[in-house]
Structure formats: C-alpha cells, structure tokens
Write a protein that binds this DNA or RNA. Structure first.
Length: 322
DNA sequence: AAAGTGACCAACCGCCGTCTT
DNA sequence: GAAGACGGCGGTTGGTCACTT
C-alpha cells in the first residue's frame, strides 16, 4: 500500500490563482518553507492540489524570479543551451537562475523558434546560392561535444571539491546560492522577491478583494477595498499593475515590513537567501551544477565562433523547431 | 466601432522516476 | 517486492490582450 493521496480530486479548484490565494500560499511558505507540498492544501485551506501549489510557487511566487523581457545575453544562452541540451527546460533554467523553466519554454516557443526559423530560412537561401553550412555545423557540433566533456569533468571536480569539507574551491565561486553556500555579496540573485509579492498585492488591490473575500475569512483585515467595485476579482496580478495605494499597509500587516518597493525594501532582503527565510529553497540539479561563469565563458567563447554570428553556428534540431 | 487574428503566458495534463508504506 | 502517491518535468491548452482589417 502506498502513501495516502495528497489531495482529493473532488473540490479541487482550477484556473488562475487569485491574489488572495497567492498571499495565503506565500505566507504559508514564509512560515514553513517550500517543500512538503502535500501538506500545503490541508494546512492552508487552499482548494488547490499540491501540484498546483508547487507550480504556482516555482513559476510565479518564488523569490528572485525575473520576469519580462529576456536580455540578449539570456537569449543567446537559451539558444545555445537548447541546441546542446534539447528541450530540457529545467536543465536550461538551471543556468538562468532568475528564470523559470516555464518562462524559458514559453520564450522559446513564442520567440526563439520563430527567430531561428527565419534565420534558418535565410541560411537555406544562402545554401542554394552555393554557401553550404553543413561543414561548419559539423565542426561546431564536434566542438560542443569536446567542450561538453570538458565541462562534465569540471562539474565533477567542482562537486568533489564541494563535498570535501574545508577545501574551498575556486570553481564554486560562480555557483548559485541555491546550492546552499554563501553567495557573493554583490550578486543580486533571489533579492528581488518583492516584485512578485508586490505584484500580487497590487493586483489584488487593483482587482479588489471583494469577491475573493466572499470565500475566505483569513488574511483580509488589512485590505483597503476602496475603488474595487469596478474591477474584476480575478486575473494575473501584473497585468493589472496600475496603482498600489494602501499596499504598504497591507504588506506591513502581512509581512511586517514598511515597504515593498522592489529596489530597496526590507522585504527584499528578508526574502533573500542570506536571511534564511528561503534558504532551503532550491532549484534542481544544484549539486552538480557547472559553474555559471565557466558555462558562460564557454557559451560565448569568441574564438569558437570565429567572430561570426553564433546563431548561424547553432545546429538546430528540426524536430524542435517544427 | 466591431470583428478577426496573432502573440503571449499562466496553468493544466500526463508521463516517469523516486519514495513511502 | 509490490502498490500507489509524490515530485518533477515537458508538452499543450485556453484565456487575455494588442494589433490589424
């Protein structure tokens, strides 16, 4: 006999999360830390299955998530890593600590696929003119394989050194805080969690807690309901991010902070790994993580690319594109 | 102004390996 | 060892918004 079910199938709510639900989930995790998702619905009263809670946390509420436009740097890394790893979004995301696998996947499907398709179409046009790219792609593939082998070795070495107490490793200096070690003081990773939380609170204020209050008796005392009537009760918080009047009070009430301005709030610091609140929170594959700086160096090795546009060197998996 | 279309993205679904009983 | 739930992952869907006709 296995374990008891995590949640009942009946009575489980689906669809978009309300800001209220977000707050309940965040406050629970603030208290208990992420993990043990099975207990979340029962402990919080959320009518969500544990899977949904975990997904909401990892893809939206988790501290340090960067949203919005991908930088050129990130874009290049994704393209290169996708060519190397395939559609293993979680693995790719492990090299982009501020991005979720879902985000990367969406970005790939909506932007990069098209972009690369266009580029390939352009290349095929060139090929027809007598400029075949097959040879260079084969060379490139060989280079990747050699480099991959090198990186695997380096990762192993880093892991060994990490597991050897009292033996600091230079390789580890570029590792992410999710590995459970002290991050460099200047590194901003996981520092901007307030953006997520403030988004949801702002969204709540915009959309108004009116309807969500109908179904809940918790977490509501701090909400200023003024102006909520003309607004919908559900929806993605950041899509309604227009004003946040009264949010400071709400935030203070919930988390005990004066402000949640993402740039310099106390909350931002409190949610950072240094203060321990989410120290246990981790991304996959942390222990065997290849140091980011090494990967980046490898990814953007000018010499390997011979000064050409690297995208043209990427061997594109047709199955992933079409 | 209304209808049509495409882009974007949050969330669901189903599979698989791991873990617990 | 077997059964079944958990946790994680990748693929896909559906709702919303913006832009075009």
């Amino acid at each position: 006999m296995g374990r008891p079910p995590c949640c009942d199938k009946i009575g489980v709510k689906k669809g978009p999360w309300t800001p209220e639900e977000d707050i309940i989930l965040v406050s629970y995790i603030q208290e208990h830390g992420p993990g043990n998702w099975r207990a979340v619905p029962t402990s919080t009263g959320l009518l969500r299955c544990s899977k949904s809670c975990r997904l909401r946390w990892t893809n939206y509420l988790r501290p340090g998530i960067k949203r919005g436009n991908f930088t050129d740097h990130e874009e290049k890394m994704i393209i290169h890593l996708q060519a190397l790893l395939g559609n293993r979004w979680a693995a790719i995301a492990s090299y982009l600590p501020q991005r979720t696998d879902n985000d990367i996947k969406n970005f790939w499907n909506t932007h990069l696929k098209k972009k690369l398709r266009k580029l390939q179409a352009g290349q095929e046009g060139q090929s027809r003119d007598g400029l075949s790219s097959t040879g260079s792609q084969q060379i490139s593939r060989g280079q990747w394989e050699r480099r991959l082998q090198t990186d695997i070795n380096m990762a192993r070495q880093a892991l060994c050194e990490a597991l050897s107490p009292g033996k600091p490793s230079s390789l580890l200096t570029g590792l992410k805080p999710s590995c459970g070690y002290e991050k460099p003081a200047t590194e901003p990773i996981y520092a901007s969690s307030t953006e997520n939380i403030s988004r949801l609170l702002k969204g709540w204020m915009i959309s108004g807690p009116k309807q969500s209050l109908k179904n809940s008796t918790t977490q509501n005392s701090f909400i200023d309901t003024a102006g909520a009537d003309s607004l919908s009760s559900e929806g993605t918080p950041d899509k309604a991010d227009k004003n946040g009047t009264g949010l400071s009070q709400a935030f203070e009430s919930l988390f005990g902070f004066d402000s949640f301005d993402s740039s310099n709030s106390d909350f931002s610091q409190s949610m950072s790994p240094d203060t321990g609140l989410f120290q246990d929170e981790s991304k996959p594959n942390s222990s065997a993580q290849v140091p980011l700086s090494l990967i980046e160096r490898w990814l953007f090795d000018e010499g390997a690319m011979q000064g050409k546009d690297y995208i043209n060197e990427v061997t594109i998996d047709e199955d992933n594109l079409f």
